[in-house]
Nucleic acid binder design. Structure first.
Lengths: 345, 345
DNA sequence: CTGAAAGCGCTAACAC
DNA sequence: GTGTTAGCGCTTTCAG
């Protein structure tokens, strides 16, 4: 079972040069005559020769690949981020190896270990909701592993981080609801301890207090779909609805779908009974029933930016001292799930 | 910049044994004493040692990875297939490297070449709509590269193939429309020459003729969103609507979204003005406006089955003579986009 | 400008 | 049972 069995040796023999010449010509090395360079390159092209990746990686101690660790690929936000990552990696001739954690910290550690065994040249990671202990990442960081965190980022670690301005996004969403006459605004999110969720909550409560509204704790629900049963989600949602909110801010793509299903099942009319706005990158939002108002994150740009920073770290010889903490603005897309509420005075 | 810099040499030295002993112990080789095996394994665990993947791959001429070539990952069907693929690969300790062609044959060839340079142990491919010349794959096949085609499969090639029964799916969809009183049934698909599309068309026309309905050529539209402009899609759709169909069968996830947008934009009410049924794996179909009737493919199972067959090919020493041509049944999910048409006699 | 040769980390004959 | 050794295909000094 051998494929790609043509080696630079074969090319060298066929052309009557040495393997080193072939190697150099292929990597466009300076100080090799244009003529031989051309000869080698053309011949390689012709016989469809591709250097063995493992051999070069082994020798050069780098793999021309980067590792990405995310919760789930099948999530509109992450798939858009990935698209951005790949667009940059591709242009640099790098491969991207994706690992899913499905939200589990054990799988996260295993994924990182695996990626390192693959000799990835750098790591792009979005923390799993479960992860609290980041000493593993710190260690890696100390060993100068190029690393960029995105979306869900740890606090006390010295690396590039890129994410969206969750505070601003939630703040704007609440202001939007207030502007449309809603006052009893509820909040629904998944893992409470995630930095993104905490920031969104901060934006939510700040916007409320700016409007002189006292926040009602019962209007806030945290619900981890991964760990909780579907039953308990419905139960919790029912309890939230019992507090009689007139509007709701939902954080997360998973919760977006589940909550919509809940509304349909229970005959809750949107926006007549409840106005809803979602932190979601669903690009099908327009086709929903009703079309949903969303706060969308510039996922593609986040992916691109994170990857650019990673390559910067990879290629820089010297220690990087100044790390970027980039926040992208979220965008509010108004659709039919937020209506106009007539405030009764 | 060195990570994972502990090698089996280090482990060997620390334990006072030879590198081969370590290697053998780690691969759980027979004929090594349980005691040393345990000693090596425990120590490796302890210092978090992971063998260099490129080195072992180089030596053993295999990478413990399989390559997957698809059009787009960000497509509900493919992402479900991928999920199935990964579930099997994971359990075998294999990595999967995904390449997207975005529907272009050049990118397809480049992707395969790339995967081979990565020494993948096998290939899982769904042909791009553009591909007509499959000699490249035939060559690979002759060289005994383990390979399984899925979804969009070539005709004249000796490998495993797994896909869904497109003929049956389309046939059932048309019968469903007929049962609900529709008679002027139109057909919309992307690339005409794709085997899947051809089979669906065959199912469509057969169902019509079984019902004694003469097919109207003007009711059939092929529209490649990748190569055509958005303008021309709308223009073609308008022409299709001008033929006054009472219902429509749409093939493909991309066309699903685009056609729904078209209907909304042009005020075409579903199902009052037009009943529509979609070949689509959108799991959000329920949330759409209106919820759409779909023919869904068992994508996850297709991915799993294809991967199992691939591993079978990889591990079989002897030439495989009997290749499987597996067809999974599609499932019709009835929702509100198909109503009841009153037939006027 | 080009070639010879050493070795990246690991595995697998082949010895003992 | 375990050690010795020769490469896997490539890059890269170091010589010419």
């Amino acid at each position: 079972m051998k494929f790609n069995h043509t080696t630079i040796k074969d090319v060298a023999k066929a052309l009557g040069v040495s393997t080193s010449t072939v190697s150099r010509a292929l990597s466009d090395n300076y100080q090799i005559s244009e003529s031989t360079k051309k000869r080698v390159q053309e011949y390689s092209q012709q016989i469809n020769f591709i250097p063995n990746h493992m051999a070069s990686g082994l020798k050069a101690r780098k793999s021309k690949s980067i590792g990405v660790v995310v919760n789930e690929i099948a999530n509109s936000y992450f798939s858009q981020v990935l698209d951005g990552i790949e667009s940059i990696a591709q242009s640099k001739g790098y491969q991207v190896i994706v690992q899913q954690t499905h939200g589990h910290k054990d799988k996260e550690m295993a994924s990182v270990a695996y990626l390192i065994s693959q000799s990835v040249d750098g790591l792009l990671v979005s923390l799993s909701p479960e992860t609290v202990d980041i000493s593993y990442f710190k260690e890696l960081c100390d060993k100068k592993m190029p690393m960029v965190f995105f979306d869900s980022v740890p606090e006390n670690i010295n690396t590039h981080k890129v994410l969206c301005d969750n505070y601003q996004g939630a703040y704007d969403a609440v202001v939007h609801l207030l502007d449309h006459g809603y006052r009893r605004i509820a909040f629904l999110a998944d893992a409470k301890h995630l930095s993104s969720v905490r920031e969104r909550f901060a934006g939510y409560s700040e916007a409320l207090s700016c409007a002189g509204i006292v926040m009602n704790e019962d209007n806030v629900l945290y619900c981890n779909l991964k760990s909780e049963s579907h039953m308990s989600f419905e139960h919790d949602m029912q309890k939230l609805m019992d507090t009689n909110p007139d509007s709701l801010l939902v954080c997360g793509d998973d919760l977006t779908c589940e909550s919509i299903k809940f509304f349909k099942k229970n005959g809750i009319r949107i926006p007549e009974d409840l106005a809803v706005i979602y932190f979601s990158n669903q690009d099908l939002a327009d086709l929903f029933d009703p079309p949903i108002s969303t706060i969308v994150q510039p996922a593609y740009e986040i992916g691109q930016h994170a990857t650019r920073l990673l390559f910067q770290s990879i290629s820089s010889k010297a220690d990087i001292k100044k790390f970027e903490y980039k926040k992208f603005q979220c965008q509010l897309q108004q659709r039919a799930s937020v209506g106009n509420n007539v405030v009764l005075i």
